[in-house]
Amino acid sequence: MAGTRGTLWIAGAALVLLLALAISGCGDGAPDVIPPRPVLVAQPQPAAGVARSFPGEIRAREESPLAFRVGGKLVRREVDVGDRVAQGALLAVIDPGDFQAQARAAEARLSAAEAQLRRAAADRARYAALADGQLVSRSTLDAQEAAWRAADGEVRAARAQVEVARNQAGYAELRAPSDGVIASRQAEAGQVVAAGQAVFTLAGDGGREVAIALPESAVADYAVGQGVEVELWTAPGARLRGRFREISPSADPDTRTYAARVALDDADAARVALGQSAKVHAAREGSALSVPLSAVQRGDDGAASAWVFDDGRVRAVAIGTGDFGAERVPVTAGLDPDDWVVIAGGHLLQEGQEVAAVDRHNRPVTPGAAHAR
């Protein structure tokens, strides 16, 4: 037993010594580095009862009907619906025979006019020499000068006709004005098309937006520039950020609805495909926002506030609230739709404290970034 107690005493002494060394090693005078506190953030949502949803379709911001500048028989089509094209790519060709013949005729008229100009120039030079020797009258010399000027004008006109004819021959080829995707086709090879008749529709790469229709009863509730949320049918629950880019001032005579376009943020535009179905969630302009109950902080005086994440830190913002609901509370003042509000961990925060913010999908959040909610 004595040996056992001695062994235990030695083991205990060794443990105490190790703890002492560990404590002494940590006490080097350097301050402990406190990592940023993780917090969960979200953006305010429209208060219940003031938001509406409208079905729509993903469209290109720039949709250009492409047509030949001259008419003729379509002899070749180089692209089909869904093909991606680069600026200047050949799309279709119409029969250039007539335009090439017109160009040759214009070039022949130019050659004849240049021959007349050379003859008129030679006659003017001869008559000028005779006039110097007073062998012809001044009026005869003036007539030769006028003939030369007329021939020179004919040459200039013929050159312009050649340029027009060559342009007409060049217009027999339809080329892409910008990068994009062929969204639709309205003509086939062998068809005779008129000048200006649409052959393709090009969806440009300049951005993506949602085309929706607003009913008469709701069009006055929304304005250009107002923020909305877009939910794709293929990704329910994930919401993208957008804004009303345009709202038609007049109703469609058939449907009595107002066409509207919702532009997606550039960061979200790459996540959508042309033709996708989508739903636009839009709150009435000027309507209240709402936040989860956990986002509201109460001070000693009973005033309500919320922690807003900004530039890597949090700041307390006084807010006005409405009647508390089961899960959310309306916010009547103090917050903007683009604010990132702390909805978990706020009771442990201090003013100006550095935090590591993540959204509901556990993705890091940076102020001003677009995230699906």
Rank of each mutant, 00 (worst) to 15 (best):
A143Q: 07
L91V: 09
A108H: 04
S111N: 07
Y127W: 13
A169C: 04
V136N: 01
D179T: 13
R166I: 01
L174Y: 08
P96D: 05
A120K: 02
A147M: 09
T140H: 09
A101V: 11
A89S: 09
E154L: 04
A183Q: 11
I94P: 00
A103Y: 05
E154W: 00
V164G: 05
Q102N: 04
R126Q: 13
G133P: 13
G97S: 09
I182H: 07
V155I: 03
S184N: 10
G82F: 07
A115C: 01
Q116A: 13
A157W: 05
Q87I: 07
Q87C: 02
V164A: 14
V162C: 02
A146I: 07
A183Y: 05
V85E: 02
D152Y: 09
L90C: 08
G180N: 11
R138L: 12
A176N: 02
D95K: 08
A105C: 07
Q134R: 15
Y127D: 12
A128Q: 15
I94M: 00
V155E: 07
R149M: 05
A151P: 01
R84V: 03
A183S: 14
G82Q: 07
L130D: 00
Q186V: 04
A151W: 01
A169W: 01
S139R: 13
A146H: 09
Y171K: 03
A146W: 08
R119Y: 10
G133Q: 13
S139N: 08
R109E: 06
A101H: 11
L174W: 03
D179E: 12
V181N: 08
E145A: 13
E154N: 04
N167L: 15
E145M: 11
A128S: 12
A86H: 06
A160L: 08
D95T: 10
R84F: 04
Q168E: 13
I94D: 03
R138S: 13
Q168C: 05
R166Q: 15
D98T: 06
R84I: 04
A172R: 03
R119F: 11
I94K: 02
V79R: 14
S111R: 15
L174D: 04
V164E: 14
D98L: 03
D132M: 01
Q168T: 13
A128L: 05
D123E: 08
A120P: 06
A112R: 10
A113M: 09
A143H: 00
D142P: 00
A125D: 13
N167W: 14
